[in-house]
């Protein structure tokens, strides 16, 4: 049995679509489940404002859902676009588009659920703060979504760019690496950003007087949390646009694939760790506003140390791309 190029491209499109939606559904479902469980807790505490809490739960869940909707869109495009008549390189392009969006939606989906749940609990604790809590939740969840948006951007670039003029080897490996780099790197940052936003909602409800400080420090901590995802998209752009000299050598191709895997996996841990540090800092700044300066300093020092392993991964990935 011989299979022509169009058949392989169709196979890759369907497998990519399955991977995108399968992995992409994990995060949002967990995050929304967490939100709903916290909302139940909140309503049992303060049944009087159950309507407000219910509305807030739905708004928060809608944001967490967006990561999964991105995955659905990419999966639909993979299923219903006609990719026939293109080079065999499209096999790796379509797989990478699916992997990037599938992995990329996990962290943001889980992460966005945390602030939404905590905002519901906060409303039951301080009904007077409901409006501010919803606003803070929206800001925090929006930042959590950025890693999944990075993944969506890379998926769209992969799906709608013309790769016909490029050499098949080693570009196929670079493109697969792109998918892994941006997709896996988004997991840690999405999750970490959610941890920070969660305690900012908690702190705001406990100490309404420190609301503005808490929002500011949350944004600072979330910005640091996003850095591993930014390293991921940086490596993805380098792999996509550097342009590699044609070579049939297997080591040259594997080096590019390894660069993507290295940066992708390497960004997961630091993203979660940085988020965890920011989470405690924001929680205690809310309770102990006088120590804001001390806490911000130690948070940034702690986050910088967490960042180091992401930087090692970045260095190894760059060595794999440019030195080897």
């Amino acid at each position: 049995m011989t299979l022509d190029i169009d058949t392989w491209i169709q196979v890759a499109a369907f497998v990519g679509g399955g991977l995108a939606m399968g992995f992409g559904a994990i995060g949002a479902a967990i995050g929304e489940g967490f939100t709903a469980s916290e909302a139940n807790l909140a309503i049992s505490r303060t049944p009087k404002i159950s309507g407000d809490i219910f509305k807030n739960m739905l708004v928060g869940q809608a944001i967490a859902e967006s990561a999964a909707i991105f995955a659905l869109v990419v999966a639909m495009i993979l299923l219903f676009t006609d990719f026939s008549g293109q080079s065999i390189l499209m096999v790796s392009v379509l797989l990478a588009a699916g992997l990037s969006m599938g992995f990329g939606a996990i962290g943001s989906g889980i992460g966005s659920g945390f602030p939404a749940g905590e905002a519901c609990v906060g409303m039951s604790r301080q009904p007077a703060m409901s409006g501010q809590l919803t606003t803070n939740m929206l800001i925090g969840s929006a930042v959590c979504q950025t890693p999944s948006i990075f993944a969506l951007v890379i998926s769209f670039i992969l799906l709608f760019s013309d790769f016909s003029g490029l050499p098949i080897a080693p570009t196929w490996a670079a493109i697969l690496g792109t998918g892994f780099a941006v997709g896996l790197a988004a997991i840690g940052s999405g999750l970490g950003g959610g941890l920070v936003a969660q305690t900012s909602c908690e702190g705001m409800a406990r100490q309404p007087t420190s609301a503005s400080t808490v929002t500011n420090i949350m944004l600072l901590a979330q910005a640091v949390t996003q850095t591993p995802a930014i390293y991921g998209i940086l490596i993805a752009f380098i792999l996509l646009f550097k342009g590699f000299t044609p070579t049939a050598s297997l080591p040259a191709a594997m080096a590019l694939l390894a660069a993507g895997l290295c940066m992708g996996f390497g960004a997961i841990g630091p993203g979660i760790g940085i988020g965890n540090t920011g989470r405690s800092a924001v929680r205690w700044i809310a309770r102990n506003k006088e120590s804001t300066a001390d806490l911000t300093r130690i948070m940034l020092v702690g986050q910088a140390v967490c960042e180091s392993t992401a930087i090692y991964s970045l260095v190894v990935a760059l060595v794999l791309i440019f030195v080897i």
């Binding site: 841990g269 979660i272 760790g273 940085i274 800092a281 130690i298 140390v305 967490c306 392993t309």
Partner: peptide
């Protein structure tokens, strides 16, 4: 591992 672990310490 180090990323997650250092995060716990910082937290």
């Amino acid at each position: 591992g180090p990323g997650v672990g250092e995060g716990l310490v910082g937290s």
